[in-house]
């Protein structure tokens, strides 16, 4: 498979060029803000390190979150525009899938045995406001795509623990940060499995904060016109 450009701004800014399952270049900027400042130079640098021109890429993969809204949108907007700019397909992947893929690719034998015995991987990321985004995975499918059995959702950590305890879910967690390299690998796995990745809508998982004002027309009845 010819090279993929992967972009994810669900945490910091992470961009990578991945060719046949190999990372040609990766740039990770940890800053949880600053996405709109960082994204342009990150794209230039990652292409330069990979030794590729924009038109050498075969597709653009983007992380759809879940993630804090403002940063997440920068990555998706950039991916949409980049794909338009080079006239190549745009593929959407749930960002938690990339974390899960990275975990399963390098898990210890102990974890491997646990997963085989039915323990789930719990992926959580910061959702701000003292909440976390979470997803539950059972392993990788034959093509290497993470199998998500629940999520992504948003919850307060304590309530998430209660919920999983109630359901008697055995779980292990990971502190792996998201890598755009894994995001590209997940996309390749999904494509190999014939999964459609056309949906690039952002996974906000929360409605916008907005309160409708009180009923209008308070004065309507007494008014002559």
């Amino acid at each position: 498979m010819t090279p993929f450009l992967a972009i994810d701004t669900s945490g910091g800014t992470s961009v990578a060029v991945v060719h046949n399952g190999e990372a040609l270049a990766e740039i990770v900027i940890d800053d949880p803000m600053g996405h709109s400042e960082n994204i342009g130079q990150a794209l230039v640098d990652v292409l330069q390190r990979a030794g590729l021109k924009p038109h050498d890429l075969s597709a653009v993969v983007v992380g759809r979150g879940p993630a804090p809204f403002t940063g997440l949108r920068v990555g998706i907007a950039a991916a949409i525009a980049f794909a338009e700019g080079v006239g190549k397909p745009l593929l959407g992947v749930v960002s938690h899938d990339a974390i899960a893929r990275a975990f399963f690719d390098r898990m210890t034998d102990t974890d491997r045995a646990a997963i085989a015995a039915g323990t789930r991987l719990l992926v959580t990321t910061d959702a701000r406001r003292k909440e976390v985004y979470w997803s539950l995975y059972s392993g990788l499918d034959a093509h290497g795509a993470p199998i998500c059995v629940d999520g992504p959702h948003v919850e307060k950590p304590a309530e998430l623990e209660d919920l999983l305890d109630q359901k008697n879910v055995q779980r292990i967690t990971t502190d792996l940060a998201l890598s755009a390299v894994s995001l590209a690998k997940v996309a390749a796995s999904h494509i190999a499995a014939g999964v459609n990745l056309n949906d690039v809508t952002a996974l906000y998982l929360r409605a916008p904060d907005a309160v409708e004002p009180k009923a209008n027309g308070k004065f309507g009845k007494q008014v002559s016109s």
Binding site: S36, G40, L43, V74, G75, F82
Partner: peptide, 8 residues
């Protein structure tokens, strides 16, 4: 974000 990526 879109403009920067489009330019690159």
């Amino acid at each position: 974000g879109a403009a920067k990526a489009l330019a690159v």
